[in-house]
Design a binder for these strands. Structure first.
Lengths: 143, 143
DNA sequence: TTTGAATCGGATTATAGAATCTGATTTAAT
DNA sequence: ATTAAATCAGATTCTATAATCCGATTCAAA
């Protein structure tokens, strides 16, 4: 089987998108988020916790606590979440797994994958969560 | 961490590319292949064995046995190897992992990823191993 | 026909990622 | 202060993938 983003990253992306579709600063328990995006509760909780480290998500403990966006949606892009969870490796390694794939000694996919990789990066970094908001709300509401 | 193809698939791709760069029908032991592509011997052996199932690779047992291409390089494309090992899942699922991502209820990356996914498929299926041969030889020789 | 070099194929082990559990801590309301 | 609701953080378990091991089999050459 093959994967673009790890499960952890997929859930992180969906969880943050969920939060970005809500009224700003409203808090949601990990259980609420997990239920909505149909992911394991404890796993979702852990991922949201992890994301507080990079300030993408913030949390408040205690009664009426929960998770919410840690920064203005104007200042968050999908790539930020990917980097926080999976890192940038996918944007650096050879698709075919060759070590030392380079312009000098390219693999048969070097050039094409180079553009596709760049386009993928652009897809994740050209729009902010604010710009994506309408589209995200539609998606989240349909879940 | 994130991955395009599984390790198994990467090694399978490299191993088949190695074979395609050799004199037709010349046989190579799993150990020789593994050494050249810098992969674990037993794992490479198992992957090559698996690939005999889809006729991409053929093997001959006994003394002077080994692995070699199972079909004419004119009739093998990279996508065949990917399908044999990882399957087509990556070309069907939503990048963000949403269930039921569709034209009606698209995720924020639906359209862009749609084109990138198609381009990736094209990259793997538009040329045969024969057409890639020169490029592959250069790469394999450099290892 | 015997021998040695090799793959085959199934079983096993190791590792990393996914998922869960639990006890401690925080916080707001009473 | 006490309580109840919630996160936090670390330990643990589960699972799929990665990697290895080994006995059985195959085959060609002497």
């Amino acid at each position: 089987m093959t994967v673009i983003f790890s499960k952890k990253c997929e859930i992180g992306l969906q969880a943050v998108l969920f939060l970005s579709a809500q009224t700003p600063n409203q808090r949601f328990s990990a259980a609420e988020v997990a239920k909505k995006i149909n992911a394991p509760k404890e796993f979702t909780s852990k991922i949201l916790q992890d994301l507080t480290g990079s300030k993408i998500v913030a949390s408040k403990k205690g009664k009426f606590g929960g998770f919410y966006l840690g920064r203005n949606p104007k200042d968050i892009k999908l790539i930020d979440i990917v980097i926080a969870i999976d890192g940038l490796e996918i944007f650096h390694k050879c698709v075919l797994g060759f070590k030392g794939c380079s312009v000098e000694v390219p693999c048969p996919c070097h050039d094409k994958w180079g553009s596709l990789r760049d386009e993928t990066y652009k897809m994740l970094s050209s729009e902010t969560l604010e710009e994506l908001r309408d589209s995200v709300i539609r998606k989240i509401d349909s879940l």
